[in-house]
Amino acid sequence: MIPLKSANNLIVDTHFDRVFERLQKSIKYVLKNGCKYKKVRYTPDATERAFLNTLKQKIILKGLVTASPERLQLLRRYMLKRFPHIHLNTNNLNRLLYKIFVLDAYSTLDKHSFIAKLDTDTCSYCNRNYIYSLSKSSKIKPELDHFYPKSLYPYFGVSFYNLIPSCQTCNGLGVKGELDPFSNEMVSPYLTKDDDYKFTFDLTKLDYLSPLDGSSSVDVILLKQIDGNVQIFKLDELYKLHNDHVLELVVKAEVNYTARYREYLNNYKGLTFSDAEIDRVLISNYTSLNELHKRPFSKLYRDIALELGLIV
């Protein structure tokens, strides 16, 4: 729902440097010993051995780990064309690559450090929850979702732009899980645009005697959406549960609260506010497109506030 900005090259290259030796070492091990999964021994055949020998080259591994979001789509197509059954977890090469990229490389990834370098504070999929973590040793840890699931696409196990910072709800069991985003027509947050989603609302009645007690009379509607993402993450259903946020904005618009308070802040002696800062104070959330990642529900607040004329 909230677009993720591409990281600068230094951050992406540093990520590769941290996983490169582990990957190369694991590939050499698998070439020599294969791997074991559920008491079954998997060893590379001649074609797979040639592929792994090519893969262990630094330039090839770097191209895979640092591939752009668009490049990941092309690599997916290439891999499925060359190895049509690679997405099956019973496939020989799938198991070998899972050992290399997931069990050996991703399992040792410092997720706290990885997310700390990304410029985002809320879940990219839903914008409903923070994704803060306190420290490496804390039980409150960040979540990373493999947009292309690691069981289907193990070769993307540590690809920088396949690792999506997300909340425990969106990354939980029974949500996206191991569903294939390609067949479910999902879009990566790195390829999501600012106008891919748009909220509106339907207010059937406003009780002027108890205006904040009538949230059941407000229906939150996604006027524009990415269907696959909304269906998988149940965004339509979840946002309908937060209609109290919309009702508060409606009440502010009805009592002309923001116009008077905007004038007050503009004329406040000793303090100077930008227009974006005044908007933030008025509706209690960020409204600038480049700041929506900073607070939950910011996209909802921005869209509804614009519709109500609370901000311009």
Rank of each mutant, 00 (worst) to 15 (best):
residue 5 K to I: 12
residue 7 A to I: 06
residue 10 L to C: 08
residue 14 T to Q: 14
residue 15 H to G: 05
residue 16 F to T: 00
residue 16 F to P: 04
residue 17 D to A: 06
residue 19 V to R: 03
residue 20 F to E: 12
residue 20 F to K: 14
residue 21 E to Q: 06
residue 30 V to C: 05
residue 35 C to Q: 04
residue 36 K to L: 03
residue 41 R to D: 04
residue 45 D to Y: 01
residue 45 D to I: 06
residue 48 E to P: 07
residue 51 F to P: 12
residue 56 K to A: 08
residue 59 I to H: 12
residue 60 I to G: 00
residue 62 K to M: 03
residue 64 L to I: 08
residue 66 T to L: 07
residue 71 R to F: 00
residue 71 R to A: 07
residue 71 R to Y: 00
residue 73 Q to I: 15
residue 75 L to P: 01
residue 81 K to V: 03
residue 85 H to A: 15
residue 87 H to K: 15
residue 89 N to L: 02
residue 92 N to R: 11
residue 92 N to E: 07
residue 94 N to S: 06
residue 95 R to M: 07
residue 100 I to L: 08
residue 101 F to T: 08
residue 110 D to G: 09
residue 114 F to W: 14
residue 116 A to T: 15
residue 117 K to H: 14
residue 118 L to D: 00
residue 123 C to F: 07
residue 126 C to S: 05
residue 131 I to T: 00
residue 134 L to V: 07
residue 135 S to V: 01
residue 137 S to K: 09
residue 138 S to C: 02
residue 143 E to F: 12
residue 143 E to S: 14
residue 145 D to N: 05
residue 146 H to K: 01
residue 146 H to S: 04
residue 148 Y to S: 10
residue 157 G to P: 08
residue 161 Y to H: 01
residue 166 S to E: 08
residue 168 Q to D: 12
residue 173 L to M: 11
residue 178 E to K: 12
residue 179 L to S: 15
residue 184 N to T: 07
residue 198 K to L: 13
residue 201 F to E: 10
residue 204 T to D: 14
residue 207 D to K: 09
residue 209 L to F: 03
residue 214 G to E: 03
residue 217 S to F: 09
residue 217 S to L: 04
residue 218 V to E: 02
residue 223 L to A: 11
residue 231 Q to Y: 11
residue 232 I to H: 11
residue 234 K to W: 13
residue 242 H to F: 00
residue 244 D to K: 09
residue 248 E to H: 12
residue 257 Y to F: 15
residue 259 A to H: 15
residue 262 R to Q: 11
residue 266 N to T: 08
residue 268 Y to R: 14
residue 268 Y to E: 13
residue 270 G to C: 01
residue 278 I to C: 09
residue 279 D to P: 10
residue 282 L to A: 12
residue 283 I to L: 13
residue 283 I to E: 12
residue 285 N to D: 08
residue 291 E to L: 13
residue 292 L to C: 03
residue 294 K to Y: 06
residue 294 K to W: 06
residue 300 L to N: 05
residue 300 L to C: 02
residue 311 I to S: 06
